[in-house]
Write a protein that binds this DNA or RNA. Sequence first.
DNA 1: GTCTTTATTGAGCGATCACTCAAGTATATA
DNA 2: TATATACTTGAGTGATCGCTCAATAAAGAC
Lengths: 190, 190
Amino acid sequence: MPRKPEYDRELLISRARDLFWRKGWAGTSLKDLERELNLKPGSFYAAFGSKDALYALTLERYAQEGVARLMTLADELGPLETLKRQPQAVIDVRDTPARACMLAKTYAELQSRGHDLADKASDLMVEMKHCFATLFRRAQEAGEIGSKHDADRLAARYQSDLLGLRMSAERNDVNAAEIAADIAADLDRL
Amino acid sequence: MPRKPEYDRELLISRARDLFWRKGWAGTSLKDLERELNLKPGSFYAAFGSKDALYALTLERYAQEGVARLMTLADELGPLETLKRQPQAVIDVRDTPARACMLAKTYAELQSRGHDLADKASDLMVEMKHCFATLFRRAQEAGEIGSKHDADRLAARYQSDLLGLRMSAERNDVNAAEIAADIAADLDRL
DNA sequence: GTCTTTATTGAGCGATCACTCAAGTATATA
DNA sequence: TATATACTTGAGTGATCGCTCAATAAAGAC
């Protein structure tokens, strides 16, 4: 009976994510979204409800794909090698709209406003940190790193270093590959 | 002949810096500034020219005070000890509007817009990196760390770690003191 | 005092913000 | 084909954005 939408919803969410990722929350206007998604205001609101609702969708997708990519890598390479490759991997990507972490950018922009999306970004960063901790624990169980270290603490430091690296990788005065290599090298000393 | 302004310009710049630092560029409206600085629009524009011009002033002041604080510390403690204390110092502060670096926040928010303030923030981060490199070089000359390392590379990594730490310190699920201690501990292994 | 010069005031500018909604259009079912 | 049910369209909402400017007030020079 009804009419079907002309757009591919999944594709639209990906495109919106890239736009939000690159330009931020305040930096992305409805006009920008309408242009990028080829959607008139009415269609946009029928499809997604609000700018914030779509932003939340894109955040979830961003985090979910990040976790999936990491865990796939871990199945192939094992925990330590995955952790060692991740720094180079996150700055290597060519088709990504930004080097910096979208969760961190969102949190930095919206935390002081007390915006719900900052809490969501925070939750997703916690989830990501748990993934890192799991890999550190597995590396310990496999005897790849010393068992005396606190995996949660290692994960927090590792995530912090990655955030710094990805922020630094946006700058053109910084040799991010060197920093990535040094972060990876530190893991061998554990 | 003329009339003197009723406000303390230096104080106003500091207050504006704190507001921008906490809420960001887009997150701080002229209404916010007028309220915080107790200035009507006309006075504001007579005094500072524009929101962006004032933001630039606050960025310069922020960086200048950061450099001054670091160099003062270096005169007291020497280069290596200064570098080791800085991580804890930047997250310890009580009276500061945010833990994250204002330069990094500005760059992250405005780079994709191609905004002049992003370039200015970038320049100031380069300046800060040079300070770190100078301290690493002095530490090498004093024999506090090995001479085989590239001081510029150490500085880039160190700054990156600090950026990550300061971003992480905004989160309440992260024990920033532990990360700060680990960053400092790494310096002893050089 | 008068004059000159600058600071202060606040209404209001055009532009843009996120968003709404009534009207028009296309499609699956009956 | 007729009807019901969405989807699409775009002009337009009130609110807020950064900012302007003419009017008014205050203070030093004479």
